[in-house]
């Protein structure tokens, strides 16, 4: 036991616990690997299909009719899709930053026990998770309409829907998701670490950044990724809360889908995939170089 405790102390000094070496893993490594291969294959099969079909000469159907770059040419000539992608990224980026900040703070508040209203807050936070998105969309449309009328009547301010109403709404549905994920990494957090730091004279600010943040970092990142993805994928809420000229990739695709999912849309999806893959590889490469 003493050895284990000593180990643990060392771990703590590094600020985080690390998994023990592979050979100690009590679980069938091969089964885990097999499962991982299976899941990643499952995740990427439709993606591969999508990429392949962006090069397919056939306009409709699943038949391969030869290689073409036609859809990419059309895509680059299509300013609407490019603009829509940029708008989507703007909305997703901004709403993720705001929602991650607010959501993480809320998770920290929830972690503190015994304040009045904690339980109601905790339960209430699940409402935005369980609300069907069409209901949220309709309710926000009704709310903004009402609010704008009041602003006009009382203050003479003439407000209208725009990009900002979309971002506000995305933050509203993202906060809870971030809080849930960050809360997960805060659960079972050893409060004594904080107390010890405080006893040793660390300010709450120092305690947070030196002790707590490193531990919840992956949770915050997870929450941010989740919120970015949710925002990028949202159609209904965006549709109802946007103003004229605000056109995201989903609203654009939805408009076009009446007719067909065109190979051009496969092409822009492939480019997005390529973009994100390049980013991942670049940052990994940079990280390796820094370590070398």
């Amino acid at each position: 036991m003493a050895k284990i405790l000593a180990d643990k102390r060392i771990e703590t000094k590094h600020g985080r616990s690390r998994p023990v070496a592979k050979r100690h893993m009590p679980w069938g490594t091969w089964a885990l690997t097999l499962n991982a291969i299976f899941v990643y294959t499952f995740l990427y099969v439709p993606i591969i299909v999508l990429v392949l079909f962006s090069f397919n000469a056939a306009k409709v159907g699943a038949q391969w009719q030869g290689f073409t770059l036609q859809w990419y040419n059309e895509l680059f000539a299509d300013a609407r899709l490019g603009d829509a992608l940029w708008t989507s990224l703007k909305i997703a980026g901004l709403s993720t930053i705001i929602a991650t900040t607010i959501g993480t703070l809320a998770a920290l508040a929830l972690e503190k026990r015994g304040w009045r209203g904690r339980k109601a807050f905790d339960t209430g936070l699940y409402l935005p998770v369980i609300i069907p998105d069409v209901v949220m969309a309709v309710s926000l449309l009704g709310f903004f309409t009402l609010a704008f009328r009041q602003f006009q009547a009382l203050l003479g301010l003439n407000l209208a829907m725009g990009l900002w109403t979309v971002i506000i709404s995305h933050v509203a549905f993202n906060i809870s998701f971030v809080t849930v994920v960050v809360g997960t990494s805060l659960a079972n957090f050893d409060r004594r670490l904080e107390e010890a730091a405080a006893d040793l004279g660390a300010t709450p600010w120092q305690t947070f950044w030196k002790i707590k943040f490193p531990l919840i970092g992956p949770g915050v990142l997870g929450g941010a990724l989740l919120s970015f993805t949710l925002s990028l994928d949202d159609f209904v809420v965006t549709f109802f809360t946007r103003g004229p000229g605000v056109n995201t990739l989903t609203t654009e695709v939805y408009g076009r889908i009446k007719k067909s999912i065109s190979p051009e849309i496969n092409a822009i999806s492939s480019l997005m995939l390529l973009g994100s893959t390049i980013l991942v590889l670049t940052s990994l490469w940079m990280q390796r170089r820094r370590q070398a």
Binding site: A79, G82, D83, L85, W86, L89, G275, L279
Partner: peptide, 10 residues
Amino acid sequence: VACGEATPTT
């Protein structure tokens, strides 16, 4: 990067 990507198509 997304910003850079989108600029030429505006």
